[in-house]
């Protein structure tokens, strides 16, 4: 590193000032929310800034006691785990065919999947409500109703990322396993999958977070009592709008676990969420 001179010091300070300013803008709303969750309602009305005059756990306790968030966590966890497993399995199979097997129409089929990435999911809100409703499959209202659309819309990006990984496998290795008599399934199962763990992890993270945070389908397809976490949060806000401390406590319960996971796995999560846009 070069020596500091006055000519360097000014830009150095300016740079850190801008960065610190943006850090403040990013972090302060979250910190404020966390602090509000520990205030009394009167304190929040009279002195909304600064540290709480009196730290209370009653808000958090009340949100936990209301019970909705426990079941919302369970719902989100079940749904996302199942849908991610489904999406990654289907995507890996298809991506392997696109990367390693020759067949007629492969290019057209691949393009068909790619189109899915560009489409705003909201185009399908009305038809999916008909498809999953009583006139169709009859599963609207339950958690299972979300699995189909979640998997369907997760496939394009997943196939794209995994196809890239499968296409980059060393050809010699694949040839060797073929010579040894591996079937296509054998190569997929015993060579391609184990060697593509990083890409699989990326796809799992991307899809899990996207599904965990999804709102529009949950809003239109879920019935009462089957809320996923984002939906439960907005409904809680609707019911307790004027109690800022209570809603902040709910926000803390939804956001803090996510932030903690993020802090520990930030490298993987950032790579996962920017996958496809950043070349590995």
């Amino acid at each position: 590193m070069k020596k500091f001179t006055c000519r360097r010091l000014v830009p150095f300070c300016l740079r850190h000032a801008v960065l610190a300013g943006f850090l403040l803008v990013t972090a302060y709303p979250l910190v404020w929310m966390a602090l509000t969750a520990f205030r009394t309602e009167g304190d929040a009305q009279a002195r909304p800034l600064g540290l709480p005059r009196q730290w209370v756990m009653t808000n958090l306790a009340e949100v936990v006691r209301s019970g909705d968030f426990g079941s919302a966590y369970a719902n989100s966890l079940m749904l996302c785990t199942a849908a991610v497993a489904g999406a990654v399995t289907l995507a890996a199979l298809a991506a392997f065919a696109f990367a390693q097997l020759r067949f007629r129409g492969s290019h057209a089929l691949f393009l068909l999947f790619l189109v899915g990435m560009m489409i705003p999911v909201h185009v399908t809100l009305i038809p999916l409500n008909r498809l999953l409703g009583v006139e169709g499959l009859g599963i609207k209202g339950g958690l299972t109703a979300l699995a189909g659309p979640y998997i369907g819309f997760a496939l394009p990006i997943s196939i794209l990322i995994l196809r890239g990984a499968f296409a980059a496998l060393p050809p010699d290795l694949l040839d060797a396993s073929r010579v040894d008599g591996c079937s296509a399934w054998g190569v997929f199962r015993h060579v391609a999958l184990p060697l593509s763990r990083p890409a699989l992890a990326t796809v799992v993270i991307f899809n899990f977070l996207t599904m965990w945070n999804e709102f529009a389908f949950a809003l239109t397809l879920l019935g009462p009592g089957r809320e996923t976490l984002p939906l439960a949060l907005t409904q809680f806000k609707g019911e307790h709008d004027i109690q800022i401390t209570l809603t902040s406590a709910a926000l803390v319960l939804v956001v803090i676990p996510l932030i903690i996971v993020y802090v520990f796995a930030q490298k993987h999560i950032i790579r996962g969420l920017t996958a496809g846009a950043v070349k590995e």
Partner: peptide, 14 residues
């Protein structure tokens, strides 16, 4: 290999 993905994609997206 492609069929399962295509079926789900076809039904819920296309």
């Amino acid at each position: 290999f492609v069929l399962p993905a295509l079926a789900v994609y076809g039904l819920f997206v296309a």
